[in-house]
């Protein structure tokens, strides 16, 4: 693995454990502080931004597949099901819309 790959793993591992440890040590103080809403809201917003940024500038078939994936996700609420069915839809659309 390259140095950056090692650092990615080490960095994320350290950051994640630090987060778990900090939560345990800080206890309720963080949850009751006025910044508690950040814990709840930011991760979801990041994921939404990730979806948007991965769709930006792509062809219509990708957007359609994404819309289908949203529907599948809504119904199944399952990552693996959404990934498989979404990917299948994407590939099928690729065949249908050339």
């Amino acid at each position: 693995m390259s140095l950056s790959q090692w650092l990615l793993i080490a960095g994320l591992a350290a950051a994640t454990f630090a987060t778990r440890l900090l939560g345990y040590l800080a206890g309720d103080r963080l949850r009751q502080s006025r910044f508690a809403f950040v814990l709840e809201d930011l991760p979801g917003l990041i994921v939404v931004a990730l979806v948007a940024s991965s769709l930006a500038g792509t062809e219509p078939k990708t957007w359609i597949a994404a819309a289908l994936a949203v529907a599948i996700a809504w119904v199944s609420n399952n990552v693996v099901v959404t990934m498989s069915a979404g990917l299948a839809a994407y590939l099928a659309l690729g065949v249908v819309i050339t």
Partner: peptide, 26 residues
């Protein structure tokens, strides 16, 4: 690298609340 670690770390912010609730159990 930094952006990737940072983005990943943000996804784990909820653990701040999760582990806080374990203080008594642990």
């Amino acid at each position: 690298l930094v952006g990737a670690v940072f983005a990943g770390a943000i996804m784990n912010l909820r653990y701040l609340g999760i582990t806080a609730s374990l203080a008594g159990i642990l």
